[in-house]
Design a binder for these strands. Sequence first.
DNA 1: CTGAAAGCGCTTACAG
DNA 2: CTGAAAGCGCTTACAG
Lengths: 341, 341
Amino acid sequence: MTRMVTQKDIARRAGVSVSVVSAVVNGTSHTRMSDETRERVEAVLTEVGYVPNDAARSLRRQRAGTIAVVVEKVDNPVYRDMFHGIYDAAEARGWAVVLGDTIWMQSGSHFLARLLGRGSIDGILLRHDGIIDETVMRLLRTQQTPVVTLEGRHAPDGRWLAVDDVGAGRIATAHLIELGHREIAYVGGGRAFVTTARYDGYVTQMREAGLTARALVATEFGFEAGSKGLVMALAQRPRPTAVVVNNVISGIGLLAAAHDAGLQIPEDLSVIAIHDAEIADNVRPTLSTVKLPMAELGTRAVEEIATALDGRPPRAGILHDPAPQVIMRGSSAPPTSGQPS
Amino acid sequence: MTRMVTQKDIARRAGVSVSVVSAVVNGTSHTRMSDETRERVEAVLTEVGYVPNDAARSLRRQRAGTIAVVVEKVDNPVYRDMFHGIYDAAEARGWAVVLGDTIWMQSGSHFLARLLGRGSIDGILLRHDGIIDETVMRLLRTQQTPVVTLEGRHAPDGRWLAVDDVGAGRIATAHLIELGHREIAYVGGGRAFVTTARYDGYVTQMREAGLTARALVATEFGFEAGSKGLVMALAQRPRPTAVVVNNVISGIGLLAAAHDAGLQIPEDLSVIAIHDAEIADNVRPTLSTVKLPMAELGTRAVEEIATALDGRPPRAGILHDPAPQVIMRGSSAPPTSGQPS
DNA sequence: CTGAAAGCGCTTACAG
DNA sequence: CTGAAAGCGCTTACAG
C-alpha cells in the first residue's frame, strides 16, 4: 500500500501552494489564479490521479456529503422506487447515499456507531415501524444527526413522512366493493403503524359502503403471513369472498396458500395487496395491487434532510400526491355465484 | 443545530487533558490513569452524551472502519444471505458495512466519489459482471482502496471470489438427467461471466451423460428473460422436456410464461433455476433451485479485504465448500410419456 | 494573483 | 499517572 498522494504533494510538484491546489480541486473561483497556473496544477492532478481525502474534507467542512438510508429488509421490492427517488434527489444536492438494514442497528454494532457518530453521515432516512430497540431509538433521538422517519410516527423532533396508508386501505377496499364484493376481510401486518393506518382505511371504506368491517387478521409480515392469514380469514363467518392484504409479499404468500387449499383465484376469492412490485406481475394469477408513490416519498425525504440541516422547521406529513392507485390484475374479479361459503 | 461536543469540552469539564479523554473513549490502557480520573471522565462522557467524530478519527487513524458493498440490484433476493455473511464478518473485524447499487456508480456521481475517495471507505466488495462502465472500472482499479470482485473475473489486482458456478450448472443439469430427462435446454443470463460458467457446467454434464448440449438461450436477466427464454427454448428441436434457468428471478418469469402458454409444470416441462431464494417456495408450482453458499462468499470476501489491507497477497478463487446443492421443489419431475413434442 | 497559517477533532508518541 | 504537542489532509479567511 503506497502512501496516499495529498494536495501537498501536488503543490510541490506544481510549484504552488496547497491553497491553489485546493482551489483548483474544488473549482473555487474565490482564489483567482492565472490560467497558466491552473493548467499546470490540473496537469499534475490528472497525472498522479489525485483523489481528495473525504475524511479530511468532512472534518474541515463539518459535513460529510453522505446520507444513510436504513430499511427493514433491503431486498423488499417495495423499496426499489424509493431508493431511486432518494438517489436522484441526493445526487442533485451533491450527496452520496449509502444503504443499510435495520437489523444491523443493534446496540454496539459498528454500523450503528457510524450512524450515530458525527462526521461520516449527515442525515438518516429510517424506515421504522416500531421494530427497533428502544435504547437504539433513544440514542438516535439524542444525536444531532437529523433523522427522517419513513412510514412511521416515531420521528425524533417530528420529522416523519409517510405515504397515504389510509387512502391505500380505502382504495383497495373500494376496488373490491366496486367489483361487487360485500364480505371482505383484511389480512396481515401485525400491529405496526402502517397496518393500523391501512386497516383504518379499510374500516372507513366498508362503513361508508354500509358494510361491516371485520376484525384485523393480524399476522406480521413476510410470505408466511399470507398463508397463515388465508387460513384465519377463511375461518371468519360469513366466509369472505375477497381480501385486502397488507403488503405484496404477504399477498404472494396468500396466493400460494390459496392454490394449495384448492381455491381458484379470483373465482373463489378476490385478492388485492397494498404496495406494488414487479413480482405481482410475475406470479400466476397475477396480483392486483395498490401502487403508492414511493419514489416521491424518497425525494421528499431527502428534501426533509436538507430542511433539517438548514435548521428549518419540519414539514412532516403524509404524501397525498400522487394518490394511491389500484393496479388491477388477475387476482381480483366480481364475486361468482358458485363461490364457496 | 448546536455545536458538536468534542473531547476538548469533555476534558475541560472533567479537569483533565484530551489525551486522557481519548484514552478513556478508546479504552486504551497505554495511558494508565487512576480509577478516580477514569470514573470522572466517564461520568462527564455519559452526562453530555459524547460521540466521537468519525471523520476526525478516520483522518487520524488513516482508516475509516467502513467497507462498502455494491451489487447489481440490492433487492435481488439472492444477496440476502451474502449481506448477512458480510455483515457478520465485518462486525467481527470492527467494520461497519454500507450498501450501494451498481447503477449509482456513474461517472461523476457523488456515490462514486465516496467510493473512490480515500478516507471514508476502506474497501469495496463489488458484484460486477461486466455491466459497469469501463471508465469507472479503470478509476476503481487505479485507486488504492482495495476492491474484491464477487462473481466476476475482472478484479483489479486479482482479488476476486466466486461461488462454484460451473458446479451449479452441472448439478442442476445432473438433477434433470437423473429424473430421466434427455432433452434439456439452458435458458437465460446473456453473455456475462457467471452465465458462461454455469452454461459450461451444463455442457460438461450433458456430454458426460452422453447427451447433446444445446446452444445457450441468451436472454439477459430479470423476470422477462424467463418468459422470452421459454419461447425460444420451446422453439428448439427436439423440443426440450426440461430447462435449466440461469437464475431464480428468470426462473419465476419462466414459470409464469409457461402458465400463460398453457403448459403444466412439471408434467410438460421440468424447470430448475440456479440460486435459491425464499420466493422459490412462494410461487406455484414451487421452483426447484440450486443453492449456492452466498453467506460464505460474503464472509470470505470480507476476509479478502482484510488480506488486502494487510498487504498480503490475494487469495482469489472459487468457493468450493460447501458445494452447490439441489433443492428439489415442485417444478421438476420425471418426464411424462404424454409430454408434448 | 498567490502563499502562510489556523483549525476542523481526533490519536499517539513523547516528556515529565 | 497525566499533559503538551504534533500531525492526519483538507478549506478558508487573511495578508501581501
